[in-house]
């Protein structure tokens, strides 16, 4: 590249006001998401057509790529469409809310996960735990306790769909996407509220 060409790559408008360029403003996204700090860690919350499609401890790049493939590539970081979700989540995490008034979209779930997750709020109750085997029996797959455990472990809509209420047959917490401390926090929260 000649000297003139390299000067051209740095060509800039006179900008006496030093005005920073602005990021674009776009309409409400097909999939809007936000990163929300909670006592159990940073969660990625996403909504599509008014339904919660993700409430996850997964990282931003992985989750937004999954959302782009499963729902629509028009995925944008927009906080406002998630105001209600954040409010309800904060109330729940402060112990002042027991059930979520939110619709859920299981676009990120496998068919088996949908079977396990869809009725989870009715198969569990606030402040109580159940076991993988019991949930397996509830969905008429009594031998599928281990598969139920795997399906719950990859729950894309954590907390809202309360997979934290499901524990091992001996009462052990076993595992949680947000870490065992998070699971313990949620169960303690529900026990004392």
């Amino acid at each position: 590249m000649t000297d003139l060409e390299s000067r051209l790559t740095r060509l800039a408008m006179p900008d006496p006001g030093h005005t920073e360029p602005k990021r674009p403003v776009l309409p409400d996204a097909d999939v809007a998401y936000t990163l929300h700090d909670t006592p159990i860690g940073t969660m990625l919350l996403a909504i599509t057509h008014g339904r919660v499609v993700a409430s996850s401890f997964g990282d931003e790049e992985t989750m937004t790529n999954r959302l782009a493939r499963a729902v629509s590539p028009r995925v944008l970081r927009q906080a406002r469409p998630l105001d209600d979700v954040r409010r309800q989540l904060d109330e729940y995490l402060a112990g002042t809310r027991q059930t979520f008034e939110l619709e859920v979209d299981l676009a990120l779930a496998t068919p088996f996960q949908r079977l396990v997750l869809t009725d989870l709020p009715t198969h569990t109750s606030y402040g109580a735990t159940t076991t993988y085997g019991t949930v397996a029996a509830d969905i008429d797959k009594p031998k599928a306790a281990r598969a139920v455990g795997t399906a719950l472990g990859a729950n894309p809509v954590c907390v809202v769909l309360p997979c934290h209420r499901v524990v091992g047959a001996n009462g052990a917490l076993t595992g949680y996407a947000g870490g065992l401390d998070a699971k313990r926090f949620l169960l303690n929260l529900e026990a004392k509220s």
Partner: peptide
Amino acid sequence: LPPFQALI
């Protein structure tokens, strides 16, 4: 396609 936010 990657998420549009990644392009922005």
